[in-house]
């Protein structure tokens, strides 16, 4: 039951799935993100990357601060394409 805990709420990735891909040999948050989509949703990993880091820290016996973090990418909070498109038009006038 504990393994059904959601690690990534945006992409519905459970702890069970996380442990599964770690067992398959994915060693870093970057790899796990690409294998499962954890961290690719609207919140961009704000919740799950710390939880994944904790698991990796435990499993590989490395301190949390040494777990490799993925790149934090803009725009940080979702922005509509329309807002961005209008900014482009304004810039062109």
């Amino acid at each position: 039951m504990a393994d059904q805990i959601l690690i990534c709420r945006c992409e519905d990735i459970t702890k069970e799935r996380l442990l599964e891909v770690i067992a398959e040999g994915y060693e870093t948050i970057d790899e796990i993100k690409r294998a499962t989509r954890a961290g690719m949703g609207p919140c961009q990993g704000r919740t799950c990357r710390q939880l994944i880091a904790q698991e990796l820290s435990k499993i590989y016996g490395v301190p949390m601060e040494e777990v490799l973090m993925p790149t934090f990418r803009a725009p940080v909070k979702p922005i509509s394409m329309g807002t961005l498109a209008d900014a482009h038009k304004k810039g062109g006038e």
């Binding site: 690719m40 949703g41 609207p42 961009q44 790149t71 990418r73 803009a74 725009p75 979702p78 922005i79 509509s80 394409m81 329309g82 961005l84 498109a85 900014a87 482009h88 038009k89 810039g91 062109g92």
Partner: peptide
Amino acid sequence: SSWQFLEECCGVICDTLPALRGLRVVRQW
């Protein structure tokens, strides 16, 4: 990544596909 790309890409594509205006961008690379 550049913010200029975010604006220009959305501007160019929304001209041809205005229905995408409501979609929210979550990530660029």
